[in-house]
Amino acid sequence: MRVRAFVLAVVLAVAGCGDGGDPPAAGGVGGTVTVLAAASLTESFGRVGTLFEQQHPGVKVTFSFGGSSGLAQQITAGAPADVFAAASPATMKTVVDAGDSAGEPVTFARNQLVLAVPKGNPKGLTSLAALAKPEVKVALCAAQVPCGAAAAKALTAAGVKVTPVTQEQDVRAALAKLKLGEVDAALIYRTDARAAGGDVDGVEFPESASAVNDYPVVALKKAPNPSGAGAFVTFVRTPQAQQVLADAGFQRP
């Protein structure tokens, strides 16, 4: 039984590595599904992938997590992937514009910024306005990356001018500076604050509503495993997957 399953998996994998146009054998979903996903999805998509594999025996999901922009560049440069899940519509647009998507992207999750502070909030920071004080060291994401753009929007909405000590290259780097105690606060996604576990508290603030980040997902045109790609894109919108995402701190679209 196990031997047969293994042989099948190998056959499917080989089929999956073919010229990409053919659906895998046996008319169903099989082979390997390669998903390029934004770094903020690392924990939740890991669990979603496991669920997907349970529902589709013989299918293997492999992830490559990274900055959305970097992943988008890899796709337009011809990386062999089946699914792309980005942390911002703007990044997704570069892939769609390059003609690398199969169909329209769909939003499957939304993320909001929180004011992340060390556990227990030693400086008692409760609003964006508190970040303007010169003695408070703040880490933001650089404006070029989605979390930085969102932070800029939220700060504008609050009418607060903050001079960060650093503009980090991604949300995880900003979180790392906070965990190491180098800064007193960072504007990061709620999901990232939650993933940090007990080290970091996330303070909600009203202006985050003006900078909600949509997460679009799309199957890719040159997917080596188009049926697998389609199945995965569908699966992330099922209640089962949505529950995993909600547990991680995402909002439903």
Binding site: G70, Q73, Q144, Q167, E168, Q169, K177
Partner: peptide, 24 residues
């Protein structure tokens, strides 16, 4: 970028600028 962070004019050297430009 890990130790000194990234702030234009103060700690943003050319390689950091290149990396961030690459994002956009």
């Amino acid at each position: 970028i890990t130790f000194a962070g990234n702030f234009p004019g103060r700690t943003q050297t050319m390689p950091l600028a290149v990396y961030l430009a690459l994002e956009q």
